[in-house]
Amino acid sequence: MKKIFLIASAILLCLSSSAQQRRVLIEQFSNASCPTCAAYSPQVYDFADQNPANAVVITYHIPFPYTHDSLHYESPTDALSRSGKYNVAGTPTSVIDGGSYNGSTSVLLSSLASRINQRIAVAPQYQIEIKNLRIINGRFNGRVVFTSAMDNSATDAKAYVVLLERGVPKTAYLASPGRNAESVYKNVMRSIFPTTSGANLVNKQLGGQDSLELDIATLNVKSLSQLRVVAFVQNDATKEVYQANYADMQGQITNVDDIETFAGTWGYDVAGKQYHAAFSEPVVEGSIVVTDITGKEILIQPLNGQTAVLDVSALSSGIYLATVRNGSTSYTTKLWVE
């Protein structure tokens, strides 16, 4: 469940010449079984990685032209809300700042740099500050402050926050990997906060501020250290994005989430309620011990070899810890059960 906190303040700020430059939002629509997505989408990601001050990418996995995409089914409603907003009919499709470009990625690539520069030249109508990011017991917390850089009173400006995972290896989906050539899926959207409709901004006069307090479940996230939050302001009537900004996790992980994943690769088969694990080295006469977050043992399974299938169908939905014991060595990872 996503908790929504929208705090409005009418504080007027003196906006100086040190105001943020525009950071352009590229919304990329992809599919894990689409061959052309593997050919063209990475070029968009590379551009953003090489120009982090100028652009940021969010990737939405949608179920066409192929339904074989496990990433889509982890956040289907959120992904389809954005593809529906832009009438996306195929993949790969790129949308720049809500519609300054909306079309085929392959066509975009030759003019990508110039289109981004054109948008950078447009003064942003908002400034966005992201702070206090942390993960506590599987929930992503933080605060995003939206400051109006001009009088936006007549606009239908809304705030959106997207939690994404910067890199997700294909091997995380052992039960149902995508069929294209990508080995790592980039900038994968995990959740749109507070809802797919965004949050209404209240204080839209020059210098007016609104803030969102983030409380987002990290369900389906494969690596907490890969999390990024992207915040943007969009005019829902015209679809123009007024400004975007992002921040990455910087190790601010506490409690259960302090545990690093050393226990190999774990892929979750939602339909079968099974985890498929592949370990970095063979396990001889070892075991997998599953506990709840209080430390109570829930399940013990003998383990021999370099792979295992862990049946979690008897477990209630929630977060568990799986400890792989191999002789005198043990490794712990976190499991989600839906």
Rank of each mutant, 00 (worst) to 15 (best):
Q243S: 02
A55P: 01
Q250E: 05
S70R: 14
V221L: 00
Y185F: 15
L310N: 05
F232W: 09
N326Y: 03
Y66Q: 12
V88G: 06
A10D: 12
S30A: 10
C37T: 11
S17F: 13
I4L: 09
S17V: 12
I11P: 06
F29A: 10
G84Q: 13
G318H: 06
G138E: 08
I319A: 14
V290N: 02
K3T: 12
S106W: 05
A217H: 05
G267N: 01
V44K: 01
S30K: 10
V161W: 02
A231L: 04
D49W: 05
I120A: 01
G318N: 13
S328L: 09
V289M: 03
D258C: 05
V324R: 15
R22F: 14
D292Q: 01
I116N: 01
K296F: 06
S316I: 05
P42K: 03
L227R: 03
N137H: 08
T36G: 13
Q301T: 11
S191L: 08
Y60Q: 03
I136L: 12
T155I: 04
S81P: 04
P52S: 01
G142L: 00
Q243H: 01
K222E: 06
T195E: 15
R179I: 12
I293V: 15
P194G: 09
V290T: 04
V202R: 13
N152C: 13
S176K: 12
L112Q: 04
L214S: 00
S223F: 05
A217Q: 11
A244Q: 03
K131I: 00
P63K: 08
R23H: 14
N141Q: 10
V290Q: 04
A55V: 02
S9H: 05
V168S: 14
Y126W: 13
Y185N: 13
G103R: 02
L108D: 13
V290M: 02
A314C: 12
G98N: 11
H61M: 08
Y331W: 06
G103V: 00
S16A: 08
S316Y: 07
I128P: 10
V122H: 07
S100V: 15
L227Y: 01
A278H: 11
L310Y: 03
G198T: 09
A159W: 10
I130R: 00
S280G: 15
V202P: 13
E129W: 02
A277S: 02
L108R: 11
K273G: 11
S94H: 10
K204M: 07
P52R: 05
N54V: 00
L164V: 03
W336T: 12
A308P: 01
E165C: 04
A48M: 01
V57A: 03
R143P: 00
T59C: 14
V44W: 02
Y275T: 01
V122P: 11
M1K: 08
T265D: 11
A159E: 06
Q21I: 10
D269V: 03
E338A: 11
I128K: 10
S153E: 10
M189K: 05
L163A: 08
P124W: 00
L163Q: 02
Y60A: 03
R143F: 00
R139T: 15
I253M: 15
L227P: 01
E27D: 13
Y101A: 07
S287P: 15
E74F: 04
D236E: 08
M189Q: 12
T323W: 10
N200T: 15
H72W: 14
Y320R: 07
T323I: 04
Q301I: 09
P282C: 04
G208L: 11
E240M: 07
H72D: 14
